[in-house]
Amino acid sequence: MTSMWNAPSWAEWILRALLPPDRADDVTGDLLETLRDESRLSSRLARQAWWARQVASRFFRSYYLFPLALIATLIWNDLFNTFRDVNGTNAGPNLFGPMLFIVFLGAGTFGGWRTRRTIGGVIASVGSHLVGWSAITCWFAVTTYPFALSQQHNPYWIQAWRGSASPGESFMHWIVWDNVGAVLLGGSALLLLSFVAGLAGGITGRWLGRRSLPILQ
């Protein structure tokens, strides 16, 4: 029997922001029909999870390159930051900030161009950040301890620990909380950057899309 469940408003809003305007009605209509045919989705939680999967699936199919580029940039930066030479010199090119801005701006421009809407660019950029943020949190959880074993033999990191640790705080405790701070404070700052760059990209992409410029085709 067909039930008359509706899409949650948050899912409908994000899906419409991710889809080109001429596809929004028919794609959400297909999804609504599919949901109403799915007898196993009897609980509200199961239906919410199903919609979350549809939103994630749509996002990754359209924008997977941007979260991947973001994750690669964040890992690249972490590796060069961690494995400095004894003088503390970071051997990597100092392109971290510009690279992040380019990724967010690129996601925003592509999203704005594809959906012909500024909000499409913002969703593409902020969504890329949220995926990257989740991935880098996992990265830190896995690498903090093995990296710290190496860092505690590096004079640069020993000096940094002595300079900023609380009295009696061990190196390991200090480095773990340094990474937690990086995830929370750095992640929040990047969320703001992704919104601003996504907005700028979304406006640019929408402008390019409405002029039917054959970029990215």
Binding site: V27, G29, L31
Partner: peptide, 22 residues
């Protein structure tokens, strides 16, 4: 869309994401 999705699932004999068909 929905009809094609159901037909593809039936032929492939496995669940398929609607997004993959779209």
């Amino acid at each position: 869309g929905r009809g094609i999705h159901a037909a593809v699932q039936e032929r492939l004999e496995r669940p398929v994401a609607p997004g993959a068909v779209h």
